[in-house]
Amino acid sequence: MITEFLQALSTQSFLQMALIAGLLASLGCGVVGTFVVVKRITFLAGGIAHSVLAGMGAAAYYGFDPLLGALVAAILSALLMGWIHLHWQAQEDTLIGALWAIGMAIGLLFISQTPGYTSNLTSYLFGNILLVPEQDLWLMAGLNVLLLLLVGLFYHQFLAVIFDEEFARLRNVPVTFFYLLLLCLIAVTVVLLIHVVGLILVIALLTLPAAIAGHYVHSLGKMMVIATVLGSIFTSGGLALSYAPDLPAGPTIILLAGSAYVGSEIVRRYRAQRLARRSIASL
């Protein structure tokens, strides 16, 4: 199965581009996914991811690049949800849930009114890594550079805001600015991942590699590196496993990541219990 994939990889340019798309997406999901996991804002990130369909649908309807529409919708959605978090905390869950559904509903309405685009709905929702055009690879690479530059420049400020917003404010860190910037980075990463797994499954690839990394290391930087490596393994592995039996790559990648997460969680709990038993025995 893998040999067949490797042989095809050496000759088929669409597979090479798919592999590059997976690796580019992994970098974003490793770095930003770590922030999402430790800040515990998976639901908010899910809201951003799903409301992106509004932008994709509108862009398709008006004849623009759907990925550009996704980027604009993701940024707007991130800013709106960030504003809700900062100013309307009591209703945050309900409002994010509402925006999540409203975004999808707007997207579905636009797609239903776009002749010839209805067939693309599945690829928006579940991704199609095998159909990534070269220009989108350049866009993904550019977004990755922007993302790494911002995180590299403001790493301490992001850490301060994620760790303790109140204390960061006391140290004159512009908390609102960096919180909204963080949500914009999540929005950019969601767009990076849409081609690979689609917007329905994006939240799994954003969080699972970082969550697994968190089982083994206790530093944000190390979590980012390990999550990026794991993301690369899952996207490349999922692509390879899905190729021969002609399965959709997106769900295969997510199943691979999900299985690894469940396995890692079981190992972690077993190790914790064993350590506790050993500690009690040594008393």
Partner: peptide, 15 residues
Amino acid sequence: FPITVEQAVLLGRLG
């Protein structure tokens, strides 16, 4: 939270 004591204290230097 995955942070060491030294890193947490260093955050107090921001500003």
